[in-house]
Measured scan of single mutants.
Amino acid sequence: MSIQHFRVALIPFFAAFCLPVFAHPETLVKVKDAEDQLGARVGYIELDLNSGKILESFRPEERFPMMSTFKVLLCGAVLSRVDAGQEQLGRRIHYSQNDLVKYSPVTEKHLTDGMTVRELCSAAITMSDNTAANLLLTTIGGPKELTAFLHNMGDHVTRLDRWEPELNEAIPNDERDTTMPAAMATTLRKLLTGELLTLASRQQLIDWMEADKVAGPLLRSALPAGWFIADKSGASERGSRGIIAALGPDGKPSRIVVIYTTGSQATMDERNRQIAEIGASLIKHW
């Protein structure tokens, strides 16, 4: 058993032996400061991975655009179909130039040979490839079927209504393609630790998130040596930015963190910096 498999397999085991986890309101002070700095709403939640207890939250039940963070949920739905014998990670999917949409750094290189379902999930999560996400959405029946999958998990909040890139429109008060921090954190925890997916599929999902290559300026920039993080970021119109993550010290995840912001006029660099500073406060007061 690899170190990674050891880590995921023991998450339920550690729940019975973990020390009490204490919240630190200092992080919420930073979240509120980020709102002031960005001139935008910020949603935040910090969840204990083992118990599911909410440690801190700010606007946990307000809607925010999901942006590309939905791609983790999408690959969770794909893995659920794999577990049920309805899909194979090794199945190759062929597509054409007409299928390519904006920001497809991986799929645009494989027009001649296509990509496997496994490769598409990797591209969608680690590189946020939009065509990969659309191709995967097609395999499960489209955005409405992803919403149905989430409903069956008990998440009646999170919804996907459109495809890439239209889902990134982020119109104020538009509930399409949105979630709430509390709903996203709970759903992510179920995917990573619950019985919905097999152990192998849970491991695969967290491996893809751990290999994320496009979230460096966010929480990863504040991470001390030896800490673990598996994450997925997102960005969209109207100053929207977000990240969902499982992270913790000693090389294993122990908390879920979800951060969303929307409605800012700030630059992408400034949005990144504010999220990184929230992460730094979280780690300092861990």
Rank of each mutant, 00 (worst) to 15 (best):
F13S: 12
S264M: 07
P249R: 06
L136R: 01
S96N: 15
A245R: 02
L167P: 01
L223W: 02
P217I: 06
F22D: 15
D212Q: 10
T187G: 04
H285D: 05
A246R: 01
M153V: 10
Q265H: 14
S80A: 14
Q204H: 11
T187I: 05
Q88G: 09
G251D: 08
E166T: 09
L135D: 02
L247M: 11
D250Y: 12
A133I: 00
L205V: 04
D83N: 04
V257A: 04
A84L: 12
G226Q: 07
I54Y: 07
T138Y: 13
P217L: 08
I283E: 00
D269N: 10
P20Y: 05
E87H: 00
D177S: 01
L73C: 07
A200P: 14
A276G: 07
T262E: 10
D48M: 05
R81T: 05
I278R: 00
L79V: 04
V21L: 09
S233C: 05
I278M: 06
G90R: 10
V72F: 06
L74Q: 00
L192V: 08
R81M: 08
K252E: 12
Q37T: 15
L188V: 10
T267P: 13
D129W: 00
M153A: 11
H5G: 09
T186G: 12
A170Q: 11
W163A: 06
P65D: 02
L160C: 13
F22V: 12
R238Q: 14
F64V: 04
S264K: 07
G263V: 08
T158R: 01
S96E: 12
N98Y: 15
V78I: 14
A183T: 08
R220P: 01
I54R: 07
N130T: 00
I125P: 00
D269Y: 12
G114S: 04
V117G: 03
G239D: 06
N173K: 10
R81H: 08
A170V: 13
D113S: 14
M115F: 00
G194A: 12
A225I: 10
S57H: 08
D177E: 01
R189L: 10
K144F: 08
V257S: 00
T27L: 07
L19I: 15
K144E: 13
D83Q: 08
F22I: 10
N152Y: 10
G76S: 10
E169N: 11
M66R: 01
G43L: 01
T186I: 14
R202Y: 03
T69I: 09
M127I: 09
H24L: 07
E61G: 15
T179V: 00
L137V: 04
D207N: 14
G52L: 03
G194D: 10
R91V: 03
M180G: 09
W286M: 04
A84T: 12
P25T: 09
A211S: 11
L167Q: 03
Y44P: 01
L79R: 00
I125S: 00
T107I: 05
M184I: 10
P217G: 10
A276T: 07
K30N: 05
R202W: 02
S254I: 08
P249V: 04
L219W: 01
M268A: 07
Y260R: 02
L247G: 03
R238N: 15
R63P: 05
R271T: 12
P65Y: 02
R41E: 06
M268Q: 07
K232T: 02
D161E: 05
R92P: 07
A215K: 05
S2N: 14
N168A: 04
T126L: 07
K144I: 10
I93V: 13
Q86S: 12
Y44F: 10
K252W: 08
A34G: 05
R91E: 03
L120V: 03
G234S: 00
Y103E: 03
L135H: 03
A246Y: 09
E61I: 08
H5Q: 13
L111V: 14
R59N: 08
T186A: 15
Y44M: 06
I229F: 03
T198H: 10
A222M: 10
D129A: 01
T138D: 14
A230C: 09
E108R: 15
P217C: 11
G234A: 02
L135N: 00
C121G: 05
S96H: 14
R238W: 11
P12M: 13
V31I: 15
D83P: 01
A9E: 08
M153T: 10
L135T: 05
L188P: 00
G242R: 02
V82K: 05
P224G: 04
G154A: 15
A200T: 12
T267F: 06
D250K: 11
A40S: 10
D83T: 03
G90L: 11
N168F: 00
A183Q: 10
A215V: 03
R59A: 05
L136T: 02
I259M: 07
E169M: 10
E87N: 02
S240E: 08
C18V: 12
A222W: 07
N130I: 00
I259F: 05
L160A: 08
A280S: 12
R118K: 11
L167V: 10
R238F: 12
L137E: 02
K109E: 12
E237S: 07
E164G: 03
V8I: 15
I244R: 01
L196I: 13
N152A: 14
Q97F: 15
M268P: 07
V82C: 11
S236E: 07
N152V: 11
L219A: 01
P181R: 02
L137G: 01
G85Q: 10
P20D: 15
L223A: 08
N173H: 12
G76C: 04
D177G: 02
G226S: 08
T193S: 14
E61L: 13
M115A: 05
K213A: 13
T126I: 08
F70L: 01
